[in-house]
Nucleic acid binder design. Structure first.
Lengths: 193, 193
DNA sequence: CGCGACGTTGATTTGCCTCAACGATTGTGG
DNA sequence: CCACAATCGTTGAGGCAAATCAACGTCGCG
């Protein structure tokens, strides 16, 4: 289980055995059943979450109670409401499991400890946030410039296979359309995958 | 002029005089006239840009030639196509001055030098990208969940005063609506600011 | 096996777009 | 510094993409 997250770290920095053990000691593992909540809109987000197994969705509910998905986090993804996490303000997002899911969690306190004891992790999270920044920059770009069917294609490329794992209504909530309209699109383009 | 960017650095890390001088020596300054281009879609983005004075817009053109603005960068903002910058791939964004503008530029090479010589800058850019990540996360969230008039309000809060400095058509291109429709909105809500 | 959630399909509505014409503002050269 | 051109903003008419509403078929879980 720990191997997954150490591999993820190794993508961006090299750490030795002691550093790895320190890092692992700062993690807390948590198992969630499908549909179980990890964070509720209006609470403070207390952890950065790494998905070991399963899949999360992060979403906001609008004034009509409709849900809009900001990101999915299948295996090897990180997921948090970073603003709430960093400022201890009330979260505008909820995070929930779409399948039975196992996450490794890093609290704010433990992250600060980590930065101090192993400054290399500044670099790791610099690269992580940088990649997240790039992902969102591209998402906004395509959100504004592309028609819905192309956004759907990008979704499938960004989250390979997720298409078949999760409910259509969640894909619709990610794309910013209704399940009804996604159904029509899929029919129109004879989409099977 | 250097004071602006040093103040910006000081928001997140403390550096001494030598480090400041090293940092400044790695910067290149550039002046742009209004409407002049800093990056063209299809070229490689070679620098991270800090706006000392004036205002930039970063945008993509879609297949019909319509422009969609991903972000504005008035004074004290940083602006780059981070994906192109980091991977030396062709940029999907253009960057252009909306006013006569002065930027301080950091090339990829110089940034890497900086990380090596003053590792504290890992932290600075970690926090910078973190804030950018948060900004985009919130933008996507409101893009999906909020009606247009509320997105307009958020724009005004995020970029105080920019409303009066730039053309309406650029605000429309940021909000993802047509100038015609923004005009109707402003009338409907008796919007002056 | 039965119930509830999900997906599909069709009819109707709506938010925003396009097109076009007209006023306002900006900026540039004489 | 004014005049005129070019760009920008406004307003109205008509159109389209996607939403809503509703009814029905289907799937998965207890």
């Amino acid at each position: 289980m720990d191997a997954f997250i150490l591999d993820n770290i190794a993508l961006h920095i090299d750490i030795d055995k002691d550093e790895a053990n320190l890092f692992l000691s700062l993690l807390e593992h948590k198992s969630l059943k499908s549909k179980e909540s990890l964070l509720q809109q209006g609470n403070v987000c207390r952890s950065i979450n790494f998905v070991v197994k399963g899949c999360l969705r992060m979403y906001t509910s609008d004034e009509n109670g409709k849900e809009h998905i900001v990101m999915f986090a299948p295996e090897n993804w990180w997921c948090t409401d970073l603003f709430s996490f960093h400022t201890s303000s009330l979260s505008t997002h909820s995070i929930e499991a779409l399948e039975n899911t196992v996450v490794a969690q890093l609290t704010h306190q433990n992250l600060e400890k980590l930065y101090i004891k192993v400054p290399k992790f500044e670099r790791f999270f610099r690269v992580l946030f940088q990649n997240g920044f790039i992902m969102y920059q591209n998402r906004i770009s395509s959100e504004l410039a592309l028609p819905t069917d192309q956004k759907y294609k990008i979704f499938k490329k960004l989250y390979p296979g997720l298409n078949k794992r999760i409910a259509q209504k969640h894909i619709a909530a990610y794309l910013g359309i209704t399940p009804v309209f996604l159904s029509m699109l899929r029919k129109k383009y004879n989409d099977i995958n």
